[in-house]
């Protein structure tokens, strides 16, 4: 049975399993990006995070990002998993694996994927601090939301 390459899950992420999904005999490179939960942000201490997603749409949008990467960098293979629910400091929130025949496409595809996730994938995080909590939005500080949907292919 083929494993899904784009997934939102409440389970801890298994980077080895995600790498296996992009392993290919024609690949000469695999990059793995792991986004982890950071304790200190601008002097504020995070105790834990809660991620929430619109799961079916989030998985569709992750797959869309993968398709965009395949189009920009032909012969790449992509797998992306995002964790939701309660996460502790240093837990992996997202794992992106990209394989390609030559290393340049893997590096670029990986960078592209994480930036796009922060634009179009309906996943939100709530920060729990020692003095309160808040939903964090618009990390890119863009104005794209005022114009409706993000532009297709925007980098």
């Amino acid at each position: 049975m083929e494993q899904k390459r784009y997934r939102v899950t409440e389970e801890p992420l298994d980077s080895t399993a995600i790498i296996q999904r992009v392993t290919d005999k024609n690949a000469g490179a695999v990059t793995v990006f792991i986004g982890t939960v950071r304790e200190m942000t601008k002097g504020k201490r995070t105790l834990s995070l809660t991620y929430e997603a619109y799961v079916p749409m989030a998985e569709k949008k992750l797959a869309q990002i993968g398709a965009e990467i395949e189009e920009k960098w032909p012969r790449t293979i992509i797998a992306i998993e995002h964790r939701i629910g309660a996460l502790a400091i240093s837990d992996a929130a997202v794992v992106i694996a990209v394989s390609s025949p030559h290393r340049d496409a893997s590096f670029k595809g990986s960078r592209y994927a994480i930036e796009r996730i922060k634009e179009i994938v309906p996943i939100w995080k709530k920060e729990h601090w020692d003095d309160g909590s808040s939903w964090i939005g618009d990390q890119l500080e863009t104005t794209a939301y005022d114009e409706g949907a993000p532009k297709e292919g925007e980098t």
């Binding site: 986004g35 991620y51 997603a53 619109y54 079916p56 749409m57 989030a58 569709k60 995002h82 929130a93 997202v94 994480i114 996730i117 922060k118 634009e119 179009i120 994938v121 309906p122 996943i123 939100w124 995080k125 939903w135 964090i136 939005g137 618009d138 990390q139 939301y145 409706g148 949907a149 993000p150």
Partner: peptide, 28 residues
């Protein structure tokens, strides 16, 4: 987002459709 795709404000939706409001995202 209507039926899991982003749409502009002038889009028309019909009986049976699902519309979601997507506040600024913060995954990753």
């Amino acid at each position: 987002a209507v039926n899991e795709e982003f749409v502009p404000d002038q889009e028309l939706i019909r009986d049976g459709d699902t519309i979601a409001f997507i506040p600024p995202v913060s995954g990753g």
